[in-house]
């Protein structure tokens, strides 16, 4: 990266992150030493297909991978200037994460208010009315109308878009410096997706947090990301600014992904590309 302003601060810096899975036949490395840089207020799009290691990378940064099953090492894992040890039993301070399916992220037997105040109590030690007031502020922040009534709602009474807004509110309660969004809109309709993306962009501006946007959808990443890293088989094979997703790509894998993505604007003669570059990557 060349044109970083001198006063820009990193929300997240990762150097040489490696993740191994402890299998019965010894450790298997699935993420092979990747570097991530996310500036405050900026978004890094982490793209790849299933099995590329993009979600594992997100979870490893968040500190969500169980230490019984995974071994994580990194030369550096720093959120907003604070160094964290990978493989620690605690979640990475300063980071928050949201997932693909908002319904499974929420507990069906708790109301939205219970869930939010729980997080607020744990994080900020607020109780009773103070916690409720903070919960209301958070629901307002994610543009949920009629927040006071929604506090008493259960997840199943809300639409998918509203559920994802609640999940984002919970993430905001942690006051993260970096938000890891793992396919947060994949389960949603396109019009709802557009609104959630808009919300994430606005929240980012308001709070200046960095974001790692993990997705298989190149078009979506080109819309939301400032910079892009393409993952394949546990490695970052290409990185650049968002223009990478609109034709500037050099790496054969990125080019293949781009050629395979249908566009709403033009019909392609053929979409599929042969995989003859596979050998050179291994």
């Amino acid at each position: 990266m060349t044109n970083i302003a001198a006063d820009a601060k990193f929300a997240l810096q990762v150097r040489n992150l490696r993740v191994s899975y402890r299998s019965d036949n010894g450790p298997v490395e699935i993420v092979h030493g990747i570097d991530l840089d996310v500036l405050e207020g900026k978004t890094l799009g982490l793209v790849g297909e299933s099995g590329s290691g993009k979600s594992i990378t997100g979870k490893a940064v968040m500190g969500l991978l169980g230490r019984r099953m995974f071994d994580i090492t990194a030369d550096k894992l720093e959120v907003a200037g604070t160094e964290t040890t990978p493989n620690s039993p605690k979640l990475t301070p300063g980071a928050a994460m949201i997932f693909q399916n908002p319904f499974t992220s929420l507990n069906p037997s708790f109301t939205v208010g219970d869930f939010l105040t729980d997080v607020i109590r744990h994080r900020h030690g607020l109780k009773g009315a103070a916690a409720k007031k903070r919960a209301l502020e958070l629901l307002d922040a994610v543009r949920i109308p009629d927040a006071a009534r929604k506090l008493r709602s259960y997840p199943h009474q809300m639409s998918g878009g509203q559920q994802q807004r609640v999940v984002i509110a919970v993430a905001l309660a942690l006051e993260p410096r970096v938000l890891i969004a793992d396919e947060p809109t994949t389960a949603l309709d396109v019009t709802v997706q557009a609104k959630i993306i808009e919300l994430l962009n606005e929240l980012q501006k308001e709070h200046g947090m960095g974001m790692v946007f993990v997705s298989h959808d190149l078009s979506l990443v080109s819309d939301i990301a400032d910079s892009v890293a393409v993952m394949y088989r546990g490695k970052i094979v290409e990185r650049g600014d968002w223009g990478l997703m609109t034709g500037a790509a050099q790496h054969p894998y990125t080019k293949m992904l781009l050629a395979s993505s249908p566009s709403v604007r033009v019909r392609s003669q053929r979409l599929s590309v042969s995989w003859d570059f596979e050998e050179e990557l291994v």
Partner: peptide, 13 residues
């Protein structure tokens, strides 16, 4: 029109 506008990947345009 709204449905088409919501399709991602139109930033360049």
């Amino acid at each position: 029109r709204n449905l088409i506008a919501a399709v991602p990947g139109q930033r360049a345009e």
